[in-house]
Simulated assay, not measured.
Amino acid sequence: MAAPSYATKPQVVGHYGLRIFVALVCVFLVAPIFAIIPLSFSSGTFLSYPMPGFSFRWYEEVLAPRPWMFTLRNSLFVAIGATIFSTTLGTLAALAMARKNLRSLPVINAFLLAPMIVPLIITAVGLYFFFAQLGLTNSFTGLIIAHTALCLPFVLVTVAATLEGFDGTLVRAAQSLGAPPLTVFRRVILPIISPGVASGALFAFAISFDEVVVAVFLAGPTQRTLPKQMFSGLRENIDPSILAMATLLVVMATGLMIVAGLLKRRSERMRGLSG
């Protein structure tokens, strides 16, 4: 009978050490969030520990028509519009680039991904001067167009990653049976890449909803978004109502992360089936 081998013991220790390190990093990143959530239930008017009492008054304030619900409606309107346009354009661009037969493909790819690479403040300043000449500042149209440009690269990358495992013989088989291009896309391509498209749409919505730099330059009083309202509140008057709204946004972001994880699993499953 062979003697037990202890050669893998350092690997086991390293494996658990890596897990502990990752857990500590997660605690370090998440601890500030859990520190501010209890303050949103404070009955006081200042941010302080220990809390003077427990109250829902700040949640009642953020549910009032102004300013929080007004800015929330603006953010949802802009984010939904930017999500629709960026998802449509990003999906079409990913399909075109997946063919690998476009001229100057690296140049086109760099152009489409530029908003992801260029510092956001530079993009915001450039959009402001360009939109000012077109009369698109202080308008929902200009804000939606700007957010569409910012969100499109994330949709493009997500859908392009889904298309990497796509079997092109399915398209050729459908075409050989006489299906027109629109039917091929609707009945063959879209059902397979739909998890990637949905994930890209979630990323686009989250990025547009949370964007503040471009909104500071382009949004007027009637287009004031929720992140801009929170940014102004942090500069002018910090009260627990900002933390109450931030807590609600944390809950929403957690829900989006869960949905994105489920879509990723479905995308991997669909990729395995198509392969």
Rank of each mutant, 00 (worst) to 15 (best):
10 P>K: 03
12 V>E: 07
14 G>R: 10
19 R>W: 14
24 L>P: 02
25 V>A: 14
29 L>R: 02
30 V>M: 12
31 A>E: 01
32 P>E: 10
34 F>L: 15
39 L>E: 02
39 L>W: 01
40 S>A: 15
43 S>W: 06
44 G>T: 07
46 F>C: 05
48 S>F: 01
49 Y>N: 02
51 M>A: 11
52 P>T: 11
60 E>M: 07
61 E>G: 06
67 P>T: 02
77 F>V: 13
80 I>Y: 00
83 T>E: 03
95 L>I: 13
95 L>G: 11
97 M>D: 02
104 S>C: 08
107 V>L: 15
108 I>Q: 05
109 N>M: 09
112 L>G: 05
113 L>Q: 12
122 I>R: 01
125 V>D: 01
126 G>T: 07
126 G>W: 04
129 F>M: 10
131 F>Q: 06
131 F>D: 04
135 G>M: 10
136 L>E: 04
137 T>Q: 08
141 T>S: 10
141 T>Y: 07
145 I>M: 14
148 T>W: 04
150 L>C: 08
154 F>H: 11
154 F>R: 03
157 V>H: 00
157 V>Q: 09
159 V>N: 08
159 V>W: 08
162 T>S: 15
162 T>G: 14
162 T>N: 12
166 F>G: 03
169 T>R: 14
170 L>R: 12
171 V>H: 04
172 R>V: 03
175 Q>M: 11
179 A>Y: 11
180 P>V: 12
185 F>A: 03
187 R>Q: 13
189 I>E: 15
194 S>W: 11
199 S>W: 08
200 G>C: 09
202 L>M: 10
202 L>D: 05
202 L>C: 03
214 V>N: 08
214 V>W: 08
217 F>D: 06
217 F>S: 08
229 Q>A: 13
233 G>I: 05
233 G>T: 07
240 P>T: 05
243 L>H: 04
245 M>R: 01
246 A>T: 14
249 L>T: 00
256 L>R: 00
257 M>K: 07
264 K>E: 13
268 E>Q: 14
270 M>I: 09
271 R>D: 07
